[in-house]
Structure formats: structure tokens, C-alpha cells
Amino acid sequence: MTRLAAAVPGIQLELVPNGSPGNPASLVVDPAQAVAAAVFLRDDPGLLLDHVSNVTGVDWLDTVLKETTRVKQVIDGVEREVEQTTERRKPGYLEAVYHLFSMARKQGPVVLRQRTANRVDKVHVASLTPVFRGAEFQEREVFDLFGIVFDGHPDLRRLLMWDEFQDHPMRKDYVEPDDYEYEPTPHDEVLDKARRHYPVGATP
């Protein structure tokens, strides 16, 4: 990581720890320097990470952080300790995750992450397809299912859904078309759906 910081001037790096034991931490890289970082990782003789195994997206929703603080207030002339809750909205983001391995040195993985600014309009990250050809279809898939726009991708079209489709189905807040009507043993969400379709007392 220090070598990477030395090789690419002005790079912003952040190391994200992994909660799962025995699994590698990941490296968050700013989209502006992502291509330079990737070229370094690929060509550095000590790393030679030439095999991009997996490219995927992750959708992190907007989270509402509730902070509870105890403050002393004077109420009715008596000083009391009162719990005060402040809500802070933390904007969510989309994340493109790359798993890099080295075929030459048979080592890895290095997990590289790029994050978008938010989930709505600033969804651009840099495409690594010019560096690793193997990312081509996977980045298209992430564009299709998550809506992350990869700048610099040679052929960014939808991969799995049809071209007229307008949503990004793998996002966590995607609402699928309500098209299954009958469930023999409804439960949970399906039960709600069944209730909406067949109101109590309605005759066929």
C-alpha cells in the first residue's frame, strides 16, 4: 500500500477492515486515480496482479444514524438528565468491488473498491476494462443491475435485461413487478401481496 501511494502521486487510499477472520481487508481507491492504481497493481513486479477474477457491485442504502446523548436540562426548575435523540442521515453509495489475483506469481487476492458519491445522480466510477479485459462483461452487468456508470468502458450497454428496461434490479430498494397472484401457502411478504390481490369477502 505504501508502494502504491508512492507510485501514484496524489492517490487517496483507505483500508477497509474485514470483519470476517482470515479474509483480506480491502482497499478503497478514489475513482479519479483508479486506473493508475490498477495499472500499478498489474505491472508492479512484486505484485503482478494480472487476473481480475471478480467484479461486482454492492448497494449500500442511505442509513439513518440515531445518536442518543444524555443532556442536562432544566425542566420546571429541576435539573434533570434527559435523553436527546438526533437523527443524522448518512447518504448511501454504490460500490464496485474488484478481486485481483496474480496468475504469474500465484497469489492474491487484493480487493479493490471504488465508491460513488451517492446512489442517485453521481454514480460514476472509472472503468478498469482498458486495464483488465476480463472486466468488460462484469462491468456491463454491474451497470445493468446496479446502475453504476463506468467511465471509459468501451461498450457500456445493458447485459442481462432488455434495453428498454428502466430500473436497476439488484439495488436494495428495487420494487419488482407485482405479477404473481396466487400462492398456496402465503407467508410474510407474499401474504401481504395475497391480501392486496384478494380482499376479504371478495367474490370471484
Binding site: 474485514n18 470483519g19 470476517s20 477472520p21 479474509n23 480491502s26 477474477s53 471478480n54 461486482t56 468491488v97 478481486h99 487476492p109 480487493v111
Partner: peptide
Amino acid sequence: KPGEAYGRLEAPKGELGFY
């Protein structure tokens, strides 16, 4: 526990990974 893992193996068709 919260965390992430990438497991891969040599499937007959190539490298099959789960993230």
C-alpha cells in the same frame, strides 16, 4: 459475523467464485 469472503474453486468450466 459481519464481514466478507471470496471463495473460489476449479469447476470443470473454470474458476467458479462466490463473493
